[in-house]
Design a protein around this nucleic acid. Sequence first.
DNA 1: GTCTATATCGAGATAGAC
DNA 2: GTCTATCTCGATATAGAC
Lengths: 221, 221
Amino acid sequence: MSPTTDAASTEVEAAETEAATKNLVFVAAERLFALHGFQNVSVRDITAAAGVNLASVNYHFGSKDALLFDIFKRRTAELNRERAKMLHEANDRHDGNPPLREVLAALLTPPLRWLAPDHERRISLQFVIRARSEGTDEIRNVLKTDVSHLRRFSDALLRARPDLSPEDVYWRLHFTLGMLHNNRFAEFDRLNVLSEGQTSEADVVGLLERMLDFAEAGFNA
Amino acid sequence: MSPTTDAASTEVEAAETEAATKNLVFVAAERLFALHGFQNVSVRDITAAAGVNLASVNYHFGSKDALLFDIFKRRTAELNRERAKMLHEANDRHDGNPPLREVLAALLTPPLRWLAPDHERRISLQFVIRARSEGTDEIRNVLKTDVSHLRRFSDALLRARPDLSPEDVYWRLHFTLGMLHNNRFAEFDRLNVLSEGQTSEADVVGLLERMLDFAEAGFNA
DNA sequence: GTCTATATCGAGATAGAC
DNA sequence: GTCTATCTCGATATAGAC
């Protein structure tokens, strides 16, 4: 082996190791935050679960807060990309004026898909939902000021229901988002206790239909 | 002044002071928790805001967690008492079978009343909503296991809509609660940004009507 | 880049004087 | 009951060896 290839392969290995370590931290942190909440998980918990060194979080992400923000940004970007794609397809199918239900479906389907018991993003959705209400000041600021992805949907809803006042449309979108964000593990547990096991969130296709029925009727009220 | 009256008045004063101090802590803690979240408020913040001694929290409530739990218990009890009263009155008006909208109104009206800008429980409602999702393990446990007050409502809904499957009723109640719990200051801010000021949560009577319209239509879907 | 050891800080809780 | 001073702990962040 020449020194050159040696150095090159070492660099590659280091880059792979770095990426691997960073990813291990990312995945472990997301999981722990989703299950136990941001404040209840320490950097030690994360690095222990990931099987990496305690200093990794600060080395790769800068701080615990920055790690949380990083996960939040990546997952919401993924989610909103899927939503935008579905809305775009609905637009294509209906000459830029998709009916109400299809707009709502584009908003709700991606997160509901993620909720499926065997979906690889199941835990990510719980993370995003928790981060929305328990997150850092930085996350709250982004939520409050960056509404661009939501505007696509409010515009589509306004077009789908030009007979409604904008005020009505905005409020009904707000209600629909409330329905969506209530889909936390803890809330499902509570509902299961109340219904004595008659409800099961495992059937996400059924749940999506239920939510669409409810929200569509609410918009048509 | 005889020693007897002296001692008596001293006891009274001490009791009043104790009650006053305890109450100052309670009120200050509720406010700070509601505005900034449980984890972001220290015992020092609370006692400073209340103008009392640092040790007061532990002396009067045992611990920070116990203080939070105390506030949560008292406010949810108040809220559920108002709800139960409204449901009871609706039962009286309709021979034990109130229509759907009146059941929903009994569930939603008390918290919406509390939301009014000049209502003395405005901050308490924000506290309860936040405590639901950001609270301690003890609070989460109570939420999960103690569904007795909700059962009154699910039973009434089942009676109001015997044509629906129980599963449908439970899910739709879940959706309705999602709409309700989304009424946080931060969410209103977000909605105001999105709607460019076209929505105002100050008109709680209007908001209640909007929510009832949406939820009733959802149940009738 | 990784890891250990440690600095530093802020928190909740409490002992003991008054 | 109240207050001050303090204890103790657990956290994040980082310096410095390898």
